[in-house]
């Protein structure tokens, strides 16, 4: 395929805007992804991740702003962009009546690749993704994890230098997710530039070198996972209150020790407070809670996770929002006209 200029950036977006009716799905988004990196686009449902990916992969035209992939303008030369990139969407975009092999060879032929190459490459990918045994079975007999791997294989058939993965592990069981992670890590070792969207903070933490956090259509923070955690600062004191004790008493006691806002989850009876002062704070916390007459199930001190980053940046937890804007009124694969 086309060899991109290694000096430039793989993906650049400048002030992208996309509305759906009154909803601003993408609202002045900027993005720069260097070649050869794994870039995580992190945010809750409705943050604009999918819309951004759809613009970058030529499936949607932005209302305004500019974007290039491998230096090629996505609005002016969509066909050339399609030649250098691969896309694996949120839902497996494969034909379930065709076999795994037929799916790959169809996509290879539509990439306009030579017949012999498509044959060889399909066999290689099926082998690599542990699908060789299922190659001649219709896809409708595949498990969810197998479908995702086949979908990913289809995106890789033309050896794209830039790969877009839109929530590649959403809906997968933990084992399949682990497998996907391994596959993605291999790709990166291979030099492919990957833009990955996810609502799983753990996933971004594990795979992406650089993370951009977006909310309501624009970037609210970016950096490496460590940088983001440092940005939030300090440690986290996490306390689980015994069911016999009063949650409000406990949070009042902890608020006095915290550096910032204390968050409280009434269901799990968990209180999280940003703190500093290392292990001595643990002792102080236990003493304060004891004075308040609160008994504990658990208490711990930890480094901030990306969840904490999200909470401190947006004022709400990632998963909370995900649950609120629970999507699909329109069935699989057609969330495109929704807010995201």
């Amino acid at each position: 395929m086309n060899t991109p200029n290694p000096a430039g950036n793989a993906i650049v977006a400048e002030q992208l805007v996309k509305h759906f009716g009154d909803v601003k799905a993408v609202d002045g988004l900027d993005l720069t992804v260097p070649f050869g990196t794994v870039f995580g686009l992190l945010g809750p449902n409705g943050a604009g991740k999918t819309t951004t990916v759809r613009i970058l992969t030529t499936l949607l035209r932005p209302d305004s702003g500019r974007a290039t992939v491998a230096g090629i303008d996505v609005v002016k030369h969509p066909d050339e962009v399609r030649r250098v990139m691969g896309l694996t969407g949120q839902y497996s975009a494969i034909d379930e009546y065709l076999t795994g092999l037929e799916n790959l060879s169809m996509v290879g032929r539509l990439y306009h690749l030579p017949h012999g190459y498509v044959k060889e490459r399909s066999a290689e990918l099926l082998e690599r993704f542990s699908l060789a045994d299922a190659a001649d079975r219709p896809v409708r007999t595949y498990s969810g994890g197998m479908r995702r791997r086949l979908d990913l294989s289809a995106s890789l058939i033309g050896r794209p230098s830039i790969l877009f993965l839109d929530e590649p592990t959403t809906g997968l069981d933990p084992r399949s997710r682990q497998q996907m992670w391994e596959v993605i890590s291999d790709l990166v070792a291979d030099g492919t530039t990957v833009l990955l969207t996810t609502q799983y903070l753990e996933e971004a933490d594990q795979l992406a070198e650089k993370i951009v956090v977006i909310d309501r259509g624009h970037v609210i923070a970016q950096g490496t996972s460590d940088e983001l955690k440092t940005q939030v600062g300090g440690d986290r004191l996490e306390v689980v209150i015994h069911s016999g004790s009063n949650l409000d008493d406990a949070s009042t006691a902890l608020r006095a020790l915290a550096d910032g806002d204390v968050s409280l989850d009434a269901v799990t009876r968990r209180i999280t407070a940003p703190v500093s002062g290392g292990s001595t704070i643990l002792v102080e916390a236990v003493r304060a809670l004891d004075v308040a007459g609160v008994s504990l199930d658990d208490i711990s001190l930890r480094r901030p996770t990306l969840d904490d980053v999200f909470l401190s940046l947006t004022g709400h937890a990632a998963e909370e929002v995900a649950a609120d804007s629970a999507k699909p009124t329109r069935g699989r694969g057609r969330a495109r006209k929704g807010a995201e």
């Binding site: 992969t57 030529t58 499936l59 066909d79 050339e80 399609r82 030649r83 990139m85 691969g86 896309l87 969407g89 949120q90 839902y91 497996s92 975009a93 494969i94 034909d95 379930e96 996509v107 539509l110 990439y111 306009h112 289809a154 069935g331 699989r332 694969g333 057609r334 495109r336």
Partner: peptide, 15 residues
């Protein structure tokens, strides 16, 4: 094909 996302796949290809 649209509902299953296959059209998206086609539209992302240089076909």
């Amino acid at each position: 094909d649209m509902q299953k996302g296959i059209i998206d796949r086609f539209r992302s290809l240089p076909m």
